[in-house]
Structures are given as structure tokens and as C-alpha cells.
């Protein structure tokens, strides 16, 4: 093929390039810029090199928040993935039930985050909430249920909120994956005398791998970035027990106005998420792949 003499077509990429620059690259670079300076006020800053990074990496409050975050995201994945798959398997495949299920499942997904927080706060309140009053009237708990009373109560409320809000997404993705399996696979399995467990492990699960990869990535990223729910519920308490990374970051940046450390923290946060997404993606892409033919 002949080489084009004029490469003016490259200019057509320019608008997209400028938009991406403003939406992603420039803000990110601002953060990078902040992270290497100590900022006293407008126009007053001192170059400090990697000092903030060193400080943040050694900050025990950041460590605590990070472990809390891992625990939370891990629990979210462990509960939401199997639950979502189970819901998808139980859903009807034809008739009016399909639309009814899809609409019901989609409902939590269209409610804004902080509204969800409010709904659950009211639902679990010990004085007027259906759940709070209900469980306390049973008189089973040593300390009456109140999400501000004990860290475990706050965690349960947060997890319930998160699972209620996002399991439908996993279920919808899994359902789409299930529907895409050709009928012949089930017919062949019937003729081969496969049990429903065998059908699940050897047909349904492998065929759902693509959508489940997306579900794991989305749920990991989203739960790792969780902010609105703990903020609405207890603002990170009781104590610091629900202070996740983003809550701590916002405290640092907007309440204490430590822009330099907060910027360094943001970048570390960003790298952690990127790293984990990469690991999950690679792991799920290669799981059960074994020897290539």
C-alpha cells in the first residue's frame, strides 16, 4: 500500500483528544501537581518532592481505612456474586414473569445513593424503623439494635444497603449471560444424562464467565469507592469503624484542607484500584483455561 502524503486526517482526532484531556488528563495532572507541594494558601506553596507519599504510605489511619475497605469489598463480592447468580437462575424464562422480575430487579438501581442511605436509616431506626423496632421487640440482642450503637450494627446496615442496592445488577448481568446459552447445550446435557449440578458447573458457569467478569469488576470498583452510604449513615462512625478510604480522603482534603497529602492519597488510591482491576481481569480471563490446544 502507498503511504499517504498528507496526514491531515489526524486533525479529526483532535476534538476527542481535547475532550479527554479536559475530562481526565488535566484534572489528574492537577492532583499530581498538588501531591508534590505543600500548599499554605492561594499562590503560596513549596515543592516537597515525594514527602507526602512517604507520609501517607506510613499513615496508620490510612492503613486502617484500607483494611476496612478490603474487608468491606471482599464481603460485598462474596455475598453479591452467589446471590446474584442464584436470583438469575431462579428467574422465569418466558411469559409475563420475565418483565415483572426485570422491572422489580431494576428498581434499586435507579434510586440515588444518598436516597438509599436515607431509606435504610429510616428502615433501621430503633424508634420508628420497621426493621429496628421489629428486631428490638424480639428482645434477642444484648445491646438493642441501633446503627450508631455498635460497629457491627453499622456494618450490617451498610452491607444490607449495598447488597440491596447492587445485587440486582449482578443478577441482571448473570440473567443476560444465561439467556445467551443456546438451547442445544441443555438438550445435549439431557441426552448425556447430566444432573442439574453438572449443568451448572459445566455449562452455565463457564458460559457466564464473560458477564461475571464484568460484574466482579464493576462491583469491586464501586464498592471500593463507596462514599455516600457510610457518609449518610454515620459519617464514618461509630468511631472510625466505617471510615473507608473515600471518607478519610474527603476528611483530609475538605475538612482539614491538607491538599498535598490528600492528593498523594488520591494517587495511591487510584493505583490500588487499577492494580486490583487488572489482577481480577487477568485471573477471570484465565480461570479454567488450562492448556491451550
Amino acid at each position: 500500500m502507498e503511504k499517504w502524503e498528507s496526514n491531515k486526517a489526524w486533525f479529526l482526532v483532535l476534538p476527542a483528544f481535547i475532550i479527554v484531556a479536559f475530562s481526565a488528563f488535566i484534572p489528574l495532572m492537577t492532583v499530581v501537581n498538588y501531591s508534590i507541594q505543600d500548599i499554605f494558601g492561594p499562590g503560596q506553596s513549596v515543592y516537597v518532592g515525594t514527602e507526602w507519599f512517604k507520609e501517607m504510605l506510613g499513615d496508620h489511619r490510612l492503613h486502617d481505612a484500607l483494611w476496612r475497605q478490603f474487608l468491606f469489598s471482599g464481603l460485598v463480592l462474596l455475598i453479591e456474586m452467589p446471590l446474584g447468580i442464584m436470583i438469575a437462575l431462579a428467574m422465569p424464562t418466558r411469559g409475563w414473569g420475565v418483565s415483572a422480575c426485570l422491572v422489580t430487579l431494576a428498581l434499586p438501581l435507579v434510586i440515588p445513593w444518598n436516597v438509599i442511605g436515607t431509606i435504610w436509616i429510616i428502615f433501621t431506626r430503633p424508634d420508628i424503623g420497621l426493621f429496628g423496632v421489629g428486631i428490638n421487640s424480639l428482645d434477642l440482642l444484648e445491646v438493642p439494635f441501633d446503627h450508631t450503637a455498635k460497629p457491627i450494627y453499622a456494618w450490617i446496615t451498610l452491607l444490607a444497603m449495598e447488597i440491596w442496592h447492587w445485587t440486582p445488577l449482578v443478577a441482571l448481568l448473570a440473567y443476560a449471560g444465561l439467556r445467551a446459552i443456546p438451547e442445544a447445550y441443555y438438550q445435549a446435557a439431557k441426552i448425556d444424562g447430566a444432573s442439574s449440578w453438572a449443568i451448572f458447573f459445566y455449562i452455565q458457569l463457564p458460559k457466564m464467565r464473560g458477564v461475571l467478569t464484568i460484574a466482579v469488576l464493576l462491583r469491586w470498583m464501586d464498592s471500593f469507592l463507596i462514599y455516600a452510604e457510610p457518609f449518610a449513615l454515620t459519617g464514618g462512625g461509630p468511631g472510625n469503624t466505617t471510615t473507608f478510604l473515600s471518607i478519610y480522603l474527603v476528611k483530609l482534603a475538605t475538612m482539614q484542607f491538607d491538599l498535598g497529602p490528600a492528593a498523594a492519597f488520591s494517587l495511591i488510591y487510584f493505583v490500588i484500584i487499577l492494580l486490583f482491576c487488572f489482577v481480577f481481569y487477568q485471573a477471570l480471563l484465565n480461570v479454567g483455561r488450562g492448556e491451550k490446544a
Binding site: Y185, Q187, A188, K190, I191, D192, I203, P206, G290
Partner: peptide, 22 residues
């Protein structure tokens, strides 16, 4: 009788395999 109780095998239009198995 269901298919697994009949002594029959069927080959479909598109190859049906258990992808994760050897």
C-alpha cells in the same frame, strides 16, 4: 420417557461441548 432414559444420542447443528473439560 425423557431423553436420558432412551438409548439415543443426538448431534446438533452447532458443536456442543463442555468448554472447560478436556
Amino acid at each position: 420417557l425423557p431423553p436420558e432414559k432412551r438409548n439415543i444420542a443426538q448431534v446438533f447443528q452447532f458443536p456442543v461441548l463442555y468448554d472447560t473439560m478436556s
